[in-house]
Design a protein around this nucleic acid. Structure first.
Lengths: 177, 177
DNA sequence: CGACCCATGTAATACGTTACATGATTTC
DNA sequence: GAAATCATGTAACGTATTACATGGGTCG
């Protein structure tokens, strides 16, 4: 696990697009960043409280009576750039499929083939989903944002296509065992 | 995070190849499974103690005076197959590079290109490393084990090649921004 | 005989999810 | 006015890393 929580980075980054409720922050993370990022409520709310105490976000009255939105302060706007500049921390790998395959002799070729086949199905489904999202994003106006969104989509597409190719190759290998 | 610790699965699986010290278990996980799995000492030793209490592993005297090795019991041998049969749990995604790219307008095209370039370098290095390991494994006798090891290596190769292709495409896109 | 590796373990701390508790607002 | 959604937060629990503490064996 990373030394410093990345939650603050994600929350600040999302808030850089405009004032939002904690609930809305979570929705954006889930719906727009969900393919490569995730946060739970249990992380987001404490993070917002922390960031407010540090003066990086402030609350402004929302549309709903009594509701308030979180907005980046000037300090917050500086901080998020600082944070994004910090080196990318990677989580230690934990690939359950490859662990099972590495000990495939315990599981048997048949069961392994099922697992790989499942992975292939998931990858093709993801590929379709990504193509759908791509069309949607490409329909948006050509703001600088769009180009960056397309890069993250493309990363998913490359990974998914690689997964499918690997699965096909691996299924063939398992067949001839 | 997964509901039940996957550490026990990995430890039992490694011990299925023969009796080992806790230290040796960690070495195998790091050196042989490191490309897709990781465990720290702080997980391995408590796991071994737990597994021993459950009667899934037992200790046998090792070669060194006073040292003892952990060995799977019959129950342990059954259990590991059960555990491997359980559905693969996936960790929620946390891709720091894609998070930065998604908010690339905050970071700027130049800094983004540096990050992507770094990722490309890492991927090519990994590709070379994997080819080295592949040659090494291919030199081993053709036991059933070998075929499974090659599948995990191939997964890494596909992923690394995809990463390189994506990086090239993305660098070009950033150039024309 | 000093450095390094083998070996075991614990404590402090951090990270993260899930479930629970609560209530307002909107929509049908 | 019932159901769904918006909204906020906490508590319990589980998972995992890192640093620390300790000592035996090996090799130069």
């Amino acid at each position: 696990m990373p030394r410093t929580t990345q939650t603050d980075v994600a929350v600040l980054a999302v808030l850089s697009t405009g004032p939002l409720s904690g609930y809305a922050v979570r929705e954006i993370i889930r719906d727009d960043l969900g393919l490569f990022w995730s946060e739970s409520f249990g992380q987001i709310y404490p993070s917002l409280a922390r960031l407010q105490k540090e003066g990086l976000v402030e609350t402004v009255p929302g549309e709903r009576r009594g509701s308030s939105l979180f907005r980046l302060t000037g300090a917050g706007r500086e901080r998020i750039v600082e944070l994004l500049r910090e080196p990318v921390t990677t989580v230690p790998p934990r690939n359950g499929l490859l662990l099972r395959l590495a000990f495939g002799n315990l599981l048997g070729a048949r069961a392994c083939a099922e697992l790989v086949s499942e992975a292939r199905t998931k990858a093709t489904a993801q590929l379709e989903e990504l193509e759908r999202i791509r069309r949607q994003v490409e329909a948006e106006p050509d703001e600088p944002q769009r180009a960056y969104a397309l890069m993250t989509i493309s990363a998913g597409e490359h990974a998914a296509r690689a997964a499918v190719a690997w699965a096909d190759e691996t299924l063939a290998a398992l067949e001839s065992l």
